[in-house]
Write a protein that binds this DNA or RNA. Structure first.
Lengths: 200, 200
DNA sequence: CAGATGTTGTACTTAGAGTACAAACTCATA
DNA sequence: TATGAGTTTGTACTCTAAGTACAACATCTG
């Protein structure tokens, strides 16, 4: 894949909604060309096909998430608070980019099949969160996990599905309300607590 | 879609792995015919196309999950224990049917686009769990949720991603170990508890 | 200005989804 | 056992849309 100009990359987002709505295989390359304003011949100059176009969009999204998540992970404060920050960060990116986010989740299979994307996903999320879980065990703000990696994956699942639901439904709730709900579930769990750990 | 013979339905599962590996659009109808042993002409006699074949497989999976989840929801005991049972039920079906399960998650987009599947998903999971959350608030074994529906969705996400990870990696851990990890995260949360609520 | 590299229109090839249809087969029942 | 309805399947077909080829034009770099 050739290095592609910023202006072109920007235009591609115009097709994200289309792909998210219809799925990649119901979307014709000509439709993508029309929706993005980039001629078909140009698309093929930069990409080998539809799949690669979607992969580009998704990788871009994951990079954005990775950036915001990294900031949250490396912030000040106890790990539990930083974890809440991670949740806010991921949901923030998802709600700001609903179309690519829907496309990503709608095509999770593709994402797991393309090694490049799987790696990006891992770097964007699993690794930082896993690190955070370890730090939480150190500073005492989180319990010690038996299997931090699989907990990190579950956390990703929880946040992603919550974000997706909002993206599909058109985000009728405020971002903070959603993030608080997710953080509360993750930190406090569903069982009642006598001593609350995460505030509302 | 015509009423289809049991024997044929069974054969179709032979193609599930193929679809899960490659994704639906990289799988030729002729490949499905070959892998399942059902001739292409017969496939078109019963289905209008690829999409409908996948939809059938997924609906079947969701029906299986719905059945097991219903049993767990309506069991004896406090809601918190029954919720752990729900987790075990869903993971059980997923680990017993890794291929359709991967195909489902790989094509979540399609699943949300096909109304019939969305309805099946809702009936299979969201509604029973939502009910369970309400009952837990009554019997005191679960805290009262502000928004039971969205919590149900998050729970589904957590369990699904955990199950998917195992399905992709080839289930190296025992089902019970996975289920316990998930249940612990959901019930107890990540923050340390002085008074444990869910056992290991 | 020259050449390299990027951009796009147009015309083409080709894979594979889905259709048409007839022959054969199954099975109930008159 | 003959008749006919529904099922099963092979073969041959159509047609959409993915992807390729290529030439003309644009833009940028030295």
């Amino acid at each position: 894949m050739r290095e592609l100009p910023v202006q072109l990359a920007t235009k591609l987002y115009g097709a994200a909604e289309l792909i998210a709505d219809q799925g990649l295989d119901n979307t014709k390359i000509d439709d993508i060309a029309e929706a993005s304003g980039v001629p078909k011949a140009t698309l093929y100059y930069y990409f080998t096909g539809k799949e690669e176009i979607l992969a580009f969009l998704l990788k871009d999204l994951l990079t954005a998430i990775a950036g915001d998540v990294a900031v949250a992970v490396n912030a000040e404060g106890p790990a539990s608070e930083r974890l809440a920050g991670v949740v806010r960060a991921q949901l923030g990116v998802m709600l700001r980019n609903p179309a690519p986010c829907r496309a990503l989740v709608g095509d999770l299979g593709r994402a797991t099949r393309l090694p490049e994307l799987a790696a990006a996903l891992s770097a964007a999320f699993y690794e930082p969160v896993e690190k955070l879980l370890r730090e939480g065990a150190e500073d005492g703000s989180l319990r010690r996990a038996e299997d931090p990696m699989s907990e990190a994956v579950m956390i990703f699942g929880t946040v992603t599905i919550a974000g997706l639901m909002e993206a599909i439904m058109g985000a009728h709730r405020e971002m903070d309300a959603i993030a608080n709900g997710v953080a509360r579930l993750l930190l406090d769990g569903l069982a009642p607590r006598t001593t609350g750990a995460a505030g509302a």
